[in-house]
């Protein structure tokens, strides 16, 4: 015996069926014990589900949520800080690797050596120029002005170093606050 479409109908909301469909279903149920049993069992389950209450969490759920939220926020901030570090680190590594690959494929060993020597001589030349500029400056300016300039430069440098150290410490320990 075919159970379709009766099986579909009996598992649906009866109100969605037309009068004719309901009559056909009723006639089929009178003849078919399998569908009758299925219908009876489905109605029992449906009633069980309708009677089952909404279960509530243990008291203090929102308090636990607030406590958990503070922990999660710290964790999330640390995770974000790590993401920033990893992103910067991997970008720097990628640029360096790209440069090395480019140099490996498009330069000979002689060119490498030449580049290194040129870089070193340029650096030494630049340092020498700076030194002569500084000594000329010191010869032609009064001592008090020199002292002021050196103190300003020194303090600024120390401040920047401290700022950098603090930024690293804060980002790694507390994370970036994203409001």
């Amino acid at each position: 015996m075919s159970h379709q479409p009766f099986e579909t109908w009996l598992l649906e909301d009866r109100r969605s069926l037309s009068e004719e469909e309901q009559q056909n279903l009723q006639q089929h149920l009178e003849r078919c014990s399998d569908c009758r049993r299925l219908e009876a069992k489905w109605q029992e389950v449906r009633l069980e589900m309708r009677a089952a209450p909404m279960v509530a969490p243990r008291p203090g759920f929102s308090r636990r949520f607030q406590a958990g939220m503070a922990e999660r926020r710290v964790r999330e901030q640390r995770r974000q800080a790590w993401r920033v570090f990893i992103a910067f680190g991997s970008s720097a590594a990628a640029v360096f690797a790209g440069f090395m690959i480019y140099a490996f494929f498009f330069s000979t060993t002689a060119e490498w050596v030449q580049s290194v020597v040129t870089l070193l001589s340029t650096t030494v030349g630049a340092a020498e120029t700076t030194r002569s500029l500084v000594s000329t400056w010191m010869q032609f300016t009064p001592f008090s002005l020199n002292l002021t300039v050196w103190i300003t430069v020194g303090v600024t440098f120390c401040f920047l170093v401290l700022l950098w150290v603090f930024a690293i410490w804060r980002t790694s320990l507390v994370g970036v606050i994203n409001k």
């Binding site: 909404m54 279960v55 509530a56 969490p57 243990r58 759920f61 929102s62 636990r64 949520f65 958990g68 939220m69 999660r72």
Partner: peptide
């Protein structure tokens, strides 16, 4: 809290897991 917890409880079948899932949902 109640409707979310109920859904989690009916889905997972354990009160502790449902609590964790409900907390995660709100987060």
């Amino acid at each position: 809290q109640r409707p979310v917890f109920n859904l989690c409880y009916r889905m997972l079948g354990q009160a502790q897991e449902a609590e964790d899932a409900a907390q995660e949902t709100f987060w």
